[in-house]
């Protein structure tokens, strides 16, 4: 399995918001609100639509490592840095 060279570190708040309304992918998405914009948050290999693990991070501020792809931030690891 290749390691993605685009992996970067971001800091931001994890929030829950309605996403992609009316499309075939509409759901309450866990979003990652950073200084570079808001992204749909996803764990590498995690369920993209409903991930209970990510729901646990809602309301927290995290530092996450991963890649930005379109409107999604796919994180490989993360740590809480406060908030809540």
């Amino acid at each position: 399995m290749k390691k993605d060279k685009r992996t970067k570190q971001y800091i931001g708040d994890v929030v829950e918001r309605r996403f992609a309304r009316g499309s075939k992918s509409e759901r309450d998405a866990v979003m990652f609100s950073t200084r570079y914009g808001d992204f749909v948050l996803r764990r590498e290999g995690g369920h993209p639509l409903f991930d209970p693990e990510l729901k646990k991070l809602v309301g927290k501020r995290i530092r996450a490592w991963g890649i930005r792809h379109r409107h999604v931030f796919i994180m490989t690891r993360w740590e809480e840095i406060g908030g809540g």
């Binding site: 075939k24 993209p48 639509l49």
Partner: peptide, 17 residues
């Protein structure tokens, strides 16, 4: 359902979305 950069498609329960 599908999503970006995902190698799976997903179903959806009619009563429990």
């Amino acid at each position: 359902h599908g999503d970006t950069r995902v190698s799976k498609f997903y179903g959806e329960n009619e009563v429990a979305p």
